[in-house]
Write a protein that binds this DNA or RNA. Structure first.
Length: 888
RNA sequence: GGGCGGGUAGCUCAGUUGGGAGAGCAUCGGCCUUACAAGCCGAGGGUCACAGGUUCAAGUCCUGUUCCGCCUACCA
């Protein structure tokens, strides 16, 4: 017995902290851009918001990345996992503004410079929260390289990109309708709009003709915008309006004379076929306005309050104004009717306020030319999207891409590097503040106050984090990255834009693979959200079950193309797995007290050969599955191997030898196999459950350093014997089959587990008999027998329960104990089951077409199955007959 | 409006080129067997949403129906 006794249950808490610190201190996560020989593997983290806390999505996302990175490191790759956070312009500004509000001040009182200082202070105090949570998760990022999108280096990259795109005419500035959030006081990109269906109303308003009686009735969901109307449009083909008396209408409440224009955009089948035109507050109306040279009257201000252009409604909040307008129209009897109407309303994705389409001067990226190359790269498989189904979504969006509004009217972010000359209004775009105007040599230049969309800087992440625009060794070695692991919710926001920028500026795709994983939902499949109260906090899960159990669960759930429905029950189940591994180790270490580097293959037993063969198979399987991002399959294979092969069969089978006090070469050989299998198993498991495996590693004799530096098990290392042992597997299948058959009888006949049984085994097949004779000790041990005899002839003993496995019949002799009735029932049940199975197989074989058209291999297989079933049924039947005759 | 994914055991879900319906949890029965009761040994349980089609053969491919979820969209 060794002195390495360990605790009975695995306690994750202090273990996790201890080993994470150890890994960091030893710099085991560090990539080396100056190393030439090893293959490189790189991933950039999807940077979480610096304001964020870790949620289930992050947990899944980073667990998968960590599994890949740890796996590749073990295989000997030079791995870079680049970590960092993004500055989350609007979100962060909102958070800091809330803090200021609590202190009774606001950013306007502070002023821009002081406010930005306050954000940096906030960041240094709270910004590392999510990083620490990633560490709790075990994330093996190269933290020494941690980046932030507002770092000086990354800011330089942002400016460089902006300047270059501007001079390539891929960035322009202009007045357009944008999505405006009055609360955040900024424009948003189209993507940043959340559409929600609302129960609203459709208001029918009559606009009287300028000449004569009557008027045109228009329908709108936003009556307050009528104050900014500058025309009414009808379809030129609309017969209803062919002979209008008047060419103009009078805008009610404003008393403005407006033209009736004709535009094919108008849908004759909707509403009245007459459309009010508000060029300053609707994107379609804006286009129509351009076509007809209409005036743009902006009635809703950027603060959500009506402007002086709204006449007597000036100063009203936009929603109050809606009420006022309706009342005003009612008084003038111009409101024809109100219908309930469901329609989509855009909301700010950051603060959920209702957005207004608003006329505004903004900066845009011309997306089409950039998108084209990004489309081609996926078409040419320079970048693979996995699962493939997402490529279609990617193409759909890319094909219909629209210009990207990149300016934001907030303070926290990269200030746009454009300066306006006060003298001549010339715009100068440059990396650094220019000293004089390019056009007039004027020296008074004012920088643009807008900042850039956060996603603009995130789009550069794969190369800006590696030092671009400098030509760094890191870029040379690690770009393009091997894979991007991300959720589909930011496929457009981020992945598509990185593709565009990466290709444009690096001349190469940013990643070879994009692995798109599922979203984590609650048990009912709903998106987890704070407002619904269905959020499971990863940190509390880690507290309760340990990081390893949590990670194993996440990986097990990560089947491709499916959402993850998180359930604590499953986490609990995998905690049991971690504990099982722990206890298997505990048992092993009671017998192992040294390293066994060499296995004496002449001395090892059948079960030893079998478990080595199974270990080889699971090793291959895990490599295959991780190579194709099938995390759940890898987890299932490992789970089955550890629990149902290593623990249930192997450890149980070798117990008698281990408990035998006498030293022998045989025992030494088995111990060496046990040592090897345990060591290799924890190495295989380490990418998934890093903490417990590191802990075990250090308790296992003969290991050095960290498990992270271990040699990954592979077929080449132990070439002579390290392979599938088909003979051992097939023999073990016979042995295990016989044992299971006996156990089945014991269970079904309610025979106490402690009662030793006498068993007679019969088989026609010589090799089967030989195998059973040779390894009868295993059967006696695991099936709890007092004796076993093996013979060829079929001669049914008195008072026996029967089990048939393949070519073997097992008689459990139970003179005086057997419950004949029970045995008859048992056999009848078994025979009935076989009869059903046989029927479907026989049907197949009686089908001429099947015999003629199916591949010979398949026919052969079915025939064999039929034979086996027949034989089994016959034998059970004959035993039933005998037992019944005996009974009678 | 367009697109995508899903409906498989009581629950949560696997099931890769079409050829034996699986796992975990839950349930039932038996065990405190000297690693683990967070355990061991057994057992039961499914017309693979519905209707057609292709095929010798369909959970798997095709068509339609239905229910659920998501993404996307400038019809007032």
């Amino acid at each position: 017995m060794s002195s390495h006794l360990i605790e009975k249950g695995y306690e994750p808490h202090d273990v996790e902290k201890r080993w994470y610190d150890f890994w960091e201190t030893e710099r085991l996560f560090a990539a080396d851009e100056n190393k030439d020989d090893d293959p490189c593997y790189s991933i950039v983290i999807p940077p979480p918001n610096v304001t964020g806390v870790l949620h289930m999505g992050h947990a899944l996302n980073n667990t998968l990345q960590d599994i890949l990175c740890r796996y590749r490191r073990l295989r000997g790759d030079n791995v870079l996992w680049m970590p960092g956070t993004d500055h989350a312009g609007i979100a962060t500004q909102n958070v800091v503004e809330k803090h200021l509000a609590q202190e009774g001040t606001d950013r306007y009182q502070l002023g821009r410079e002081k406010f930005i200082e306050a954000v940096w202070e906030w960041r240094s105090e709270y910004g590392s929260a999510i990083i620490n949570q990633l560490k709790r998760l075990g994330a093996s990022c190269d933290w020494e390289r941690e980046r932030f999108t507002m770092d000086e280096g990354l800011s330089r990259a942002v400016r460089k990109v902006f300047v270059k795109l501007y001079h390539e005419n891929l960035i322009y500035r202009g007045s357009y309708i944008v999505n405006w959030c009055h609360r955040c006081y900024t424009a948003l990109a189209d993507l940043e709009v959340d559409h929600e269906e609302h129960d609203g109303h459709l208001y029918y308003i009559r606009y009287p003709f300028a000449e004569g009686d009557g008027g045109l009735v228009v329908a709108t969901t936003r009556p307050e915008t009528m104050l900014g109307d500058t025309a009414v449009a009808i379809n030129p083909g609309d017969e209803r309006y062919f002979d209008l008396d008047s060419s103009h209408v009078i805008l009610p409440l404003m008393n403005r004379k407006m033209p009736i224009i004709k535009d094919k955009y108008v849908d004759m089948s909707f509403g009245t076929g007459a459309l009010k035109i508000t060029p300053a507050h609707d994107p379609n109306d804006f286009d129509i306005g351009n076509r007809h040279n209409l005036e743009r009257v902006k009635v809703i201000g950027d603060d959500g309050v009506m402007t002086p252009e709204a006449g007597k409604f000036k100063g009203l909040d936009r929603f109050d104004c809606r009420e006022a307008v309706i009342n005003g129209l009612k008084e003038e009897h111009l409101l024809e009717k109100i219908e309930p109407y469901k329609h989509n309303v855009g909301h700010c994705y950051r603060c959920k306020s209702v957005l207004e389409p608003n006329l505004s001067k903004q900066w845009f990226v011309k997306a089409k030319p950039l998108a084209k190359k990004a489309i081609d790269a996926v078409k040419n498989a320079e970048t693979r999207i996995i699962p493939e189904t997402w490529t279609k979504t990617y193409f759909d969006w890319m094909d219909n891409i629209r210009d990207w509004c990149i300016s934001r009217q907030i303070w926290w972010g990269h200030q746009i590097p454009a300066w306006t000359c006060e003298a001549c209004q010339e715009i100068v775009v440059a990396m650094d503040a220019p000293e004089r105007c390019d056009a007039c040599e004027g020296r008074r230049l004012v920088q643009e106050t807008d900042v850039l969309d956060t996603w603009f800087s995130s789009a550069l992440w794969p190369f800006s984090t590696m030092g671009w625009p400098d030509e760094t060794p890191a870029l040379k070695r690690f770009y393009p990255t091997s894979v991007l692991v991300t959720g589909f919710d930011i496929l457009f926001f981020w992945v598509a834009r990185m593709m565009m920028m990466g290709i444009h500026f690096m001349g190469d795709v940013p990643f070879k693979d994009v692995y798109v994983h599922a979203l984590v939902r609650d048990e009912e499949g709903k998106k987890m959200s704070k407002s619904m109260g269905n959020v499971i906090d990863p940190m509390s899960v880690i507290e309760q079950y340990g990081t390893d159990a949590f990670r194993f669960t996440l990986a097990a759930f990560a089947a491709q193309g499916r959402d993850v429905k998180m359930s604590e029950k499953r986490i609990e189940g995998y905690r049991h797995f971690v504990n099982k591994l722990w206890n298997a180790t505990r048992f092993s270490l009671m017998h192992i007290d040294k390293a066994y580097e060499r296995i004496d293959h002449d001395q090892i037993s059948l079960v030893d050969r079998w478990i080595l063969s199974r270990l080889y198979r699971v090793t291959e399987k895990v490599s295959e599955d991780l190579g194709s991002y099938r995390f759940n399959d890898a987890v299932a294979a490992l789970y089955k191997f550890v629990w149902h092969e290593f623990c249930d069969w192997y450890l149980e089978a070798i117990k008698p030898l281990l408990y035998d006090k006498t030293e022998s070469l045989r025992k030494e050989a088995t111990l060496s196999v046990l040592w090897r299998v345990l060591r290799d198993t924890i190495i295989l498991l380490h990418p998934f459950i890093p903490f417990v495996t590191e802990e075990i590693w250090h308790r296992l004799p003969g290991t050095e350093g960290s498990i992270m530096q271990a040699v990954y098990p592979s077929g080449t290392r132990d070439a002579a014997r390290w392979e599938i042992d088909a003979e051992a597997e097939s023999k073990m299948n016979i042995i295990m089959g016989v044992i299971s058959g006996i156990r089945n009888v014991r269970g079904e006949m309610n025979i106490s587990p402690s009662m030793p049984l006498v068993v007679l085994v019969q088989s026609d097949v010589e090799s089967t008999r030989e195998t059973i004779v040779e390894y009868q000790d295993i059967i006696i041990n695991l099936a709890r027998l007092s004796s076993i005899s093996i013979e060829k002839t079929e001669k049914r003993p008195k008072s026996a329960a029967t089990a048939v496995v393949d070519d073997t019949t097992i008689f459990v002799l139970l003179e005086g104990i057997i419950d004949v009735e029970k045995e008859i029932q048992r056999l009848e049940k078994e025979i009935k089951k076989l009869t059903n199975e046989l029927a479907s197989v026989a049907k197949k074989l009686s089908n001429e077409d099947f015999l003629g058209k199916a591949p010979a291999q398949v026919v052969q297989k079915v025939k064999e199955k039929h034979g086996a079933l027949m034989e089994k049924q016959e034998r059970l039947q004959s035993n039933l007959d005998k037992i019944m005759a005996f009974e009678a």
